[in-house]
């Protein structure tokens, strides 16, 4: 890790159990401000669960989660979001009954109060920004289509656009390129490289070539623990990592 970045997010000894099963088992992780961290690991390693604990979807049984020096443990989901954390879900999660434009309007959440929004009608400036965003992810032609009609790849793009509209300091991405074509994956890599620096990103991915294109530091999880951390080369040479991926077709094919 480049030592000049202050630590933005710190997970200390986080444990998550589901009915006695330890999905996350003493996880430590530190991510610096502006860093793009890739999180990999075989199926069931606990990657999604780790993101769930950061954004408040599941509460850890023990351990500490600190963001910008403040504990997130006791906060509700919306409070964590207001603290500056946004999340893309593994199963793309958008508002299927709303149009693409409306989805983006909801995601544009600078004001979160009820009354602040009850008197909000004009969407002039906001609308400009939203149209540019839609263009960025190639959905400018679908602005008036309801999100339920989008293809899987387009839905992925829409959810990414929602995060851009939300504009959080820390972005959590769970398998953003699943279901995307090679070109789309490349476009995503470009986008992430541009976000890096201005935002802190944690990207869960299986596609190693994609990971190599975007990530500096890669964290590997296995059976709920942090197995290794380092550059792509270090990770690929790491004996423990190779063993963890045994039987799942090797690290590149995971």
């Amino acid at each position: 890790m480049s030592g000049d970045t202050s630590s933005h997010l710190v997970l200390t000894d986080v444990v998550v159990t589901f009915n006695g099963f330890q999905a996350v088992n003493g996880l430590h992780m530190t991510v610096g401000k502006g860093e793009l961290r890739c999180l990999i690991g075989p199926n069931g390693a606990g990657k999604t669960t780790a993101l769930d604990t950061i954004c408040g979807q599941t509460k850890p049984a023990s351990g500490k989660i600190m963001f910008k020096g403040k504990s997130l443990n006791k906060l509700e989901e919306h409070q964590i979001s207001r603290a500056g954390i946004g999340r893309k879900f593994q199963v793309p999660s958008v508002f299927r009954e709303l149009t693409v434009r409306e989805n983006l309007q909801v995601a544009y959440c600078k004001h979160t109060g009820v009354l602040a929004n009850a008197f909000r009608f004009g969407r002039g400036q906001e609308a400009d920004g939203l149209e540019k965003l839609a263009e960025l992810v190639g959905l400018q032609g679908q602005l008036n289509t309801s999100a339920g009609h989008l293809s899987h790849g387009q839905t992925q793009w829409l959810e990414i656009a929602l995060l851009l509209a939300q504009d959080p300091e820390l972005i959590l991405m769970d398998e953003p390129t699943a279901g995307m074509t090679v070109q789309e994956t490349r476009k995503t890599a470009d986008l992430f490289n541009r976000l890096k620096g201005r935002h802190t990103l944690i990207v869960v991915e299986h596609d190693m070539s994609f990971v190599k294109e975007i990530g500096e530091v890669i964290s590997v999880m296995h059976q709920g623990r942090m197995l290794a951390e380092g550059t792509a080369q270090q990770i690929e040479r790491n004996q423990e990592v190779r063993e963890a991926y045994l039987g799942s077709g090797g690290i590149t094919g995971a």
Binding site: H78, S81, G86, S93, F95
Partner: peptide, 9 residues
Amino acid sequence: NRVRYFGYD
């Protein structure tokens, strides 16, 4: 559930 992650209570 999705709405919560945009900061709305």
